[in-house]
Design a protein around this nucleic acid. Structure first.
Length: 786
DNA sequence: TTAGGATTGG
């Protein structure tokens, strides 16, 4: 029999296998039987690198699986290919392809196998008169000439089947297909060799990580990953061991598909391949991975809008390129905007007008909105090639505060340092990208005339970026002469001296002009409390340990399967792989019988940990921790938050709440457009919502006397929501800076700024005595202080 | 071949 080795193209008809050949079932294969007229057909699930035997003969080993008998006791067999055939096969045989062999020898192995692999192997060689037929499963046209000069084609009526290896089953020296959720990635960059490189770390529900180094001379053939959480499918990736861990690396024929990892987003692959296989089964895999990732993968890196940037951090920015300029050999300037205004003065990199590429009129219009990003070293070449007007995601930009010793005139610089640490780099996003669509719509809505007006309103503007000492002095003087607080009402009242107030009877209202000598608590986070407007009680905000304890307690109650998948929510359940074998159920509330986009979705979770719940809040609009009873889901103990939205935990008053069954939520879900307002959710669940407030004691003084006044503030005074301060470092810093302006540490009375406030006096009587208290109201920190 | 994740310089 002639040796025939060819690729057969999918969809192309050809001559069938020689008619005398009959298919043999793996189960019936035995050593010593006559298999002359038989062939074995299956899918290549593993292939090993080509090796040389002691005598110099080439050996290529593959594992072939019978896809029609996957459940049989024996469903795969090792095939050892020798000599010239080994060399030829190693070049073209890929994992996942259909493999047919005839004219093989069956050799019994000395020991029985415990897995589902046959206890014989097949030996194949040109000398033995073997023939191998391989069916190409992707529509790439490669035809190798067969050694006999004949062309034989194998009919392909069966859809191609790929086998995907979970990340915990990877073995060194194999070429596999796999799925994974992107946990980390470096966008493609120019390597020190000849190719582009992208490093991608994947994870899958086996919780095993795999870092892959992907190389290609063609930028397009690397996976189009835009954010952590994207899902990829790799075909023919080589696995090997490096530093004791498995590592993936591109091999010949590597191909990838990338999908948005957002639950509910359309399942559309991003790929440069003209043709690829993608079936319902694979759509299901993507959807399952999305749900798994939603509670197991941290959100994409610190994305930010320019309006939300903070000094001294790293962030990812989605933006449009409006200008670029060569600065010197190792740095390059990108001018970008995202439609929002950076709250800090930003630096302008000095470049000659003639070196700046971009539309002059637009650059002028955007002069207060666009920011300068200086990119260095290895990023320069890529930056130079960028098209003006294109949409970019720049990863791990460093926002650096310069001249920090003088905060009044400090500015922010944006650097993309050299190297690729933490995925530092630049990615070009296609216009079809949902984030780009959203950004484009937003950019179009920005009124550029308005942004020019902001010039005069914003005191910290570009023109004062390199402000001089005079600006600083003026600012200080302004704080000393004017007031660092302003009144929001009653401007017609005149000031009353503190001495007069102290000696007057309560209740009354006064306008005062005083200085803040000191305040309590000095640790500002201690000023946040929870307030019940029904019973007027104040309580401390429970800490995370309290919540953790309650979650642990409720994890003992297993989810009740009878409560799953009702008319108004859809349930997903699983058991954790760890020793604890925790049962987790997530109930996604539907609207109009449909699941919503995550950012609109309310979900209820049973059995989750603090970390899992926290992760879910990053993806979904509302998260309600619950447990099962016999008849319905119910809220946990009210020491735990009954609702989590973004960073905010909402609590209910234990005295005033009468928790109701969770099914009451279905009435909100049925609304035209459920807004999932915490107040509405609280109401239908019988919860008296506790409000976050700042409670502080200000010691106010003027030339005539001193008094203590309480500040009771939701967000009006500091212009910071009390609900967000505990989870937001930036707001904490902002509040600390405000307090430092109102009450600069170490200053004498004469150097303290003035505060204009309204205070009201009131009586508090107990059995023994009557005491007068004061409370600040209708007052806010001046805009230029915040 | 290249990179092999692990910031902060200009």
């Amino acid at each position: 029999m002639p040796v025939q080795l060819l690729k057969i193209i999918e969809g192309q008809s050809g001559t069938p296998l020689p008619s005398h050949l009959q298919k043999e079932n793996l189960q019936h294969l035995q050593e010593g039987c006559d298999h002359t007229n038989k062939y074995i057909e299956g899918i290549v699930t593993h292939s090993y690198p080509l090796t040389k035997l002691g005598d110099g003969t080439d050996l290529f080993k593959v594992v072939v699986q019978d896809p029609d008998h996957l459940c049989s006791r024996i469903n795969s067999i090792n095939v050892l290919i020798y000599g010239k055939m080994a060399e030829d096969c190693a070049k073209i045989i890929r994992h996942g392809e259909t493999f047919v062999v005839a004219g093989f020898k069956v050799i019994k192995l000395p020991t029985a196998r415990e897995d589902s692999r046959h206890d014989c192997h097949l030996e194949v060689s040109e000398e033995a008169g073997s023939a191998i037929y391989v069916r190409e499963t992707e529509m790439v046209q490669i035809i190798l000439p067969c050694s006999s000069g004949n062309m034989t084609c194998f009919p392909c009526s069966v859809a191609p089947k790929y086998v995907y290896t979970p990340l915990n089953h990877l073995k060194g020296g194999t070429i596999v297909n796999l799925y994974g959720v992107v946990k980390f990635f470096k966008p493609p960059y120019i390597s020190k060799g000849t190719d582009y490189c992208s490093v991608v770390t994947l994870v899958d529900p086996s919780n095993v990580k795999l870092t892959c180094s992907l190389f290609s001379g063609n930028l397009d053939s690397l996976p189009k990953i835009y954010k952590v959480g994207d899902i990829v499918r790799f075909h023919r990736i080589k696995i090997r061991e490096y530093n004791g861990q498995m590592q993936g690396i591109t091999s010949g024929g590597f191909a990838s598909l990338t999908f948005d990892g957002t639950v509910g987003a359309p399942v559309v692959p991003r790929t440069s391949s003209r043709a690829y296989t993608f079936m319902d089964e694979e759509q299901k895999t993507i959807e399952e991975l999305r749900i798994w990732a939603a509670s197991n993968i941290s959100i994409s890196g610190p994305a930010a809008k320019l309006s939300g940037v903070q000094p001294m951090l790293f962030f990812d920015l989605t933006c449009q390129l409006v200008g670029k300029a060569k600065v010197d050999g190792s740095s390059f300037l990108l001018k970008v905007w995202d439609g929002t205004k950076c709250p800090y003065p930003t630096w302008k990199v000095p470049v000659e007008a003639k070196d700046l590429e971009g539309e002059k009129v637009l650059l002028h219009q955007l002069r207060n909105l666009a920011v300068d990003i200086l990119v260095y070293d290895n990023h320069v070449q890529l930056a130079e090639s960028l098209q003006i007007g294109s949409f970019l995601r720049i990863y791990s930009i460093h926002s650096k505060q310069a001249s920090a010793d003088n905060e009044d005139v400090s500015h922010i610089e944006f650097h993309l340092h050299g190297g690729t640490c933490y995925g530092r780099g630049i990615g070009v996003l296609p216009e079809s990208n949902p984030d780009v669509k959203e950004l484009k719509a937003f950019l179009e809505s920005v009124d550029l005339t308005d942004s020019q007006n902001m010039e005069s309103i914003c005191s910290m503007d570009v023109d004062s970026t390199f402000g001089n000492v005079t600006d600083l002095e003026l600012h200080l003087q302004r704080c000393q002469q004017l007031s660092v607080t302003v009144l929001t009402d009653h401007q017609d009242l005149s000031n009353t001296e503190l001495k007069t107030i102290i000696t007057s009877t309560a209740p009354q209202q006064y306008r005062i002009r005083a200085k803040l000598r000191t305040y309590k608590p000095q640790k500002l986070h201690q000023s946040v409390k929870l307030y019940c407007s029904k019973c007027n009680s104040l309580q401390e905000v429970p800490d995370r340990d309290d919540f953790d304890l309650i979650l642990h307690g409720s994890a003992g109650t297993a989810p009740n399967p009878e409560l799953h998948n009702t008319s108004w929510y859809e349930s997903v359940t699983w058991t954790t792989q760890d020793q604890k074998q925790r049962e987790i159920a997530i109930h996604f509330v539907k609207h109009d019988e449909m699941l919503q986009y995550p950012e609109d979705t309310l979900l209820m979770i049973e059995g989750g940990t603090l970390k899992e719940i926290w992760k879910l809040t990053k993806k979904f609009k509302c998260v309600i921790p619950v447990r099962s009873t016999k008849d319905d889901l119910e809220l946990l103990d009210l020491s735990a938050p009954f609702l989590l939205q973004g960073n905010v935990k909402y609590y209910g008053c234990k005295q005033c709440s009468t928790p109701k069954p969770m099914k009451n939520l279905s009435s909100l879900a049925a609304e035209q457009q459920p807004s999932w307002e915490p107040t509405e959710i609280a109401q239908v669940l019988g919860i008296e919502l506790l409000q976050y407030v700042f409670i502080m004691k200000f010691t106010l003084v003027d030339e005539t006397g001193a008094l203590n006044a309480y500040l009771f503030d939701y967000e009006k005074f500091f212009q910071i929501p009390a609900s967000e301060i505990l989870t937001n470092n930036f707001l904490q810093q902002k509040m600390q800076m405000t307090m430092n302006t109102l009450c600069p540490p170490g200053k004498r009375f004469g150097d303290l700024p003035w505060l204009e406030c309204f205070i009201r006096s009131y009586n508090v009587r107990d059995a023994m005595k009557n005491q007068v208290y004061y409370q600040i109201f209708d007052t806010t920190v001046a805009e230029d202080v915040v």
